[in-house]
Design a protein around this nucleic acid. Structure first.
Length: 279
DNA sequence: CTCCAGGTTTATG
DNA sequence: CATAAACATGGA
């Protein structure tokens, strides 16, 4: 189904570093098309034009999953306009450049494990690592008999809680092996209730997440922002550190963007990577 | 080969 | 409290 929507650029979303399982594929139209797996479902989507995308799924599935996943009811246009019309020269440019980004509502457990894996890895390495985990521990998804390619859902907490260190090392998880297992076990045992963490406040959610071995402040902010949709999440990684240091000379206050700090962070991240030749 | 990557933990001053 | 070293490994 085709959807008319502003501020939705598939390429920007796929390349924004918040999700790691969107892959570009060829389309008969020659336009930008991606395939992805989320919530156990396979989806292809194509950029028809600047303000229109086509999702290749049923209307039920669209309303059940993807409308919310892509945060389509949120008005990004007004955020972008606020920043573009604002006083901050860096954010004017960053918002204009990344205006097609949306903050996805990913599966909380997937965000949790993905960002544990992400630490001290570059984005291509994160992608391949997550694919390896999915192929080993995730349920196979059948798309069609002929497609020849295998697709896997993200593993359940149960499946990952049973993983052993050696196997995770073989999948190139490195020292993160025990972090992954302890996180999966915490969820499996109910010590961490991710659905509950969605309900409570951002600060509390971060605090609870940091109780897990291997989750520090940055990863907890990522999980909160991308998995729990706490829009106050403001992950400070090497790129945001660079922005705060080089652009703001260590005088940046995220509090001035209360209510949408996570979106501001995303524009900063995406734009800085572009400026430094990684976008 | 060297340096860096959407960091966290542990040790040390 | 702040800083430094260790950690495992692939990508550029």
């Amino acid at each position: 189904m085709k959807i008319r929507i502003k501020n939705f650029d598939i390429l920007q979303i796929a390349d924004s570093g918040q999700c790691f399982r969107m892959n570009q594929i060829d389309a008969p139209s020659g336009k930008i098309r991606y395939e992805m797996i989320a919530y156990g479902k396979y989806l292809e989507l194509e950029q028809v034009d600047k303000d229109q995308v086509e999702l290749f799924c049923s209307e039920e599935e669209y309303h059940e999953i993807w409308e919310e996943y892509f945060d389509l009811s949120y008005d990004y246009e007004s955020i972008v306009n606020t920043l573009i019309e604002g006083e901050d020269p860096f954010l004017k440019e960053a918002a204009a450049y990344g205006r097609g980004i949306r903050i996805l509502k990913q599966e909380p457990f997937e965000a949790m494990i993905s960002f544990i894996i992400s630490q001290n890895k570059n984005i291509p390495a994160i992608r391949s690592g997550i694919e390896a985990i999915c192929a080993r521990y995730g349920e196979r998804i059948v798309i069609s008999e002929k497609s020849g390619k295998d697709y896997y859902a993200f593993p359940t907490p149960d499946a990952l809680a049973k993983a052993d260190k050696e196997e995770l090392r073989r999948l190139k998880m490195g020292y993160r092996d025990e972090y992954i297992i302890s996180a999966a076990k915490a969820v499996q045992k109910g010590e961490i209730n991710l659905e509950y963490l969605k309900q409570i406040g951002f600060d509390e959610a971060v605090k609870a997440l940091k109780g897990v071995h291997g989750i520090g402040d940055k990863v907890a902010n990522c999980i909160s922002l991308y998995g729990l949709h706490h829009i106050e999440g403001f992950p400070v990684d090497v790129w945001i550190k660079r922005v705060i240091d080089e652009i703001y000379h260590n005088k940046f206050e995220k509090e001035q963007y209360f209510g949408y700090a996570g979106i501001v962070q995303q524009y900063m991240f995406y734009y800085m990577r572009y400026l430094k030749g990684r976008g």
